[in-house]
Amino acid sequence: MIENSDKLKIGEKSFNSRLMLGTGKYRNIHDATNSIENSECEIVTVAIRRLPIDLKNDNINFLKYLDWKKLWLLPNTAGSQTAEEAIRMAFLGHELACQLGQEENFFVKLEVISDPKYLLPDPIGTLKAAEFLIKKGFTVLPYINADPMLALHLEDLGCKTVMPLGSPIGSGQGITNLTNIQIIIENSSVPVIVDAGIGTPSEATIAMELGADAVLLNTAVAQSNNPAQMAYAMNLAVKSGRLAYLSGRMEKKYYANPSSPLNQISKLE
């Protein structure tokens, strides 16, 4: 088992789970709530644009069915095409957190996506918005392309994580840029969270085996045939990958090496 001391720390907040789950694309409230429960995640991300300003007057919003004493809200600025839009969404996200009883929650998943076709993050807009929000006291988790230099610039600004995409969002292509993500992990002193593109538990495990600190996913669970079961599978995959990373893999060799060498057998005798 992973030791209790192996916690994910983002800013001043610590978490036991290294799986984060999104809340979009579910077929119904039942699938969404069951998936979140089965995933054992502690961070749930919500697109602010999709929500009403006042949750008390919304009778169908599934957020009221979640236990916010156990979960931590990660508002995201999805749909923002400019830095200014993202900044506005971040402040609305904090208002939502306050409505859920998390007045001290200034977390924001920063997304600035100006291209509606490929949905790739805008690096200039992301930098601009991140700098402003950090000065206002937000804990910024920026969603970025797997760009090692951009990751370093955002870390220097004061971002508490970097969140490189594994492949285009919602594509289910898996991790198509392993080399760049590995460079980001090796050079980062803040948690690296692989976000977007993961389609199967094995791909989540690969991300964790690389040394990623966490994985954030949504479509792979929400659009599966059995979301609650897939959420549980992703939970196990992330735990497995983390354990493997902490254990340290064997050295690769370019020739066969018997698992029961003769000299070892003779020593045992």
Rank of each mutant, 00 (worst) to 15 (best):
H94F: 05
K136E: 15
P142E: 02
L120H: 03
T126I: 01
T82G: 06
K135W: 06
G125A: 11
I87P: 03
N105Q: 09
L96K: 08
M89V: 07
D122N: 14
T77P: 05
I134D: 09
L110S: 11
A86P: 13
E95P: 05
Q102K: 07
Q102L: 06
K135F: 04
I87D: 02
A129I: 05
A90H: 08
E131Y: 09
S80C: 09
G125Y: 08
F91M: 10
G79W: 05
P121I: 00
G137Q: 07
L92Y: 12
V112Y: 00
Y118G: 05
L120S: 09
F107L: 11
I87M: 07
L119T: 08
C98R: 11
E85G: 01
Q102N: 07
L133H: 08
K117R: 14
I124K: 12
L119F: 10
T139I: 13
L133I: 08
E103D: 15
I134G: 09
G101Q: 13
F91R: 15
Y143I: 02
D122V: 02
T82E: 07
L133Y: 04
Q102P: 07
Q81H: 11
P142I: 00
I113C: 07
L100N: 14
T82Q: 07
T82A: 07
Q81M: 13
A90R: 10
L133D: 09
F91C: 08
I134E: 07
A130H: 03
Y143H: 10
T82I: 04
F91Q: 13
D115G: 04
M89L: 14
I87K: 05
A86W: 03
E95W: 05
P142Q: 08
L100T: 13
G93Q: 06
F107W: 11
E95N: 15
I124H: 08
K109W: 00
K128C: 08
P121K: 01
V112E: 03
F106R: 15
S80E: 02
A78T: 06
